[in-house]
Nucleic acid binder design. Structure first.
Length: 105
DNA sequence: CAACTGACTGCCG
DNA sequence: CCGGCAGCCAGTT
């Protein structure tokens, strides 16, 4: 089990219609402070063509889509799940952020 | 092996 | 929230 797997596992826990931040995912994955690594891991998914990880539910801590490659696609996928994305690719975290397992119940 | 870079974040103002 | 600065991990040069 390397760090990437832990990150992917954490991302898979994010419920549809919700979002989480890189830092939060890193923490859930047991890698506090490795926010950049999360972005790096998700970037790798692109090349690997892995469709099992909901990477589009991950945005930065301000609710902005920092995806440098498929920002438009990410915004579209989120809206498809019911998440409101502003024209500037921004999301209201107060309403959509997934705090963790406690947030499910 | 050192330096650079990137889908980031917290602290200060 | 915006801008600047340092810390963070892994892969490249």
């Amino acid at each position: 089990m390397n760090n990437y797997d832990a990150i992917y596992a954490a991302v898979k826990r994010i419920p549809a219609g919700r979002v989480s931040s890189y830092g939060r995912v890193a923490r859930l994955a047991g890698l506090p402070g490795a926010a950049r690594l999360v972005g790096y891991a998700l970037h790798a998914l692109r090349d690997q063509g892995d469709q099992t990880v909901p990477w589009w539910r991950v945005v930065n801590h301000t609710g902005f889509i920092s995806n440098a490659y498929e920002a438009e696609l990410q915004a579209a996928l989120l809206e498809a799940e019911g998440v409101v994305v502003s024209p500037a690719h921004r999301i209201d975290l107060r309403h959509y952020v997934w705090e963790g397992v406690l947030d499910d119940a």
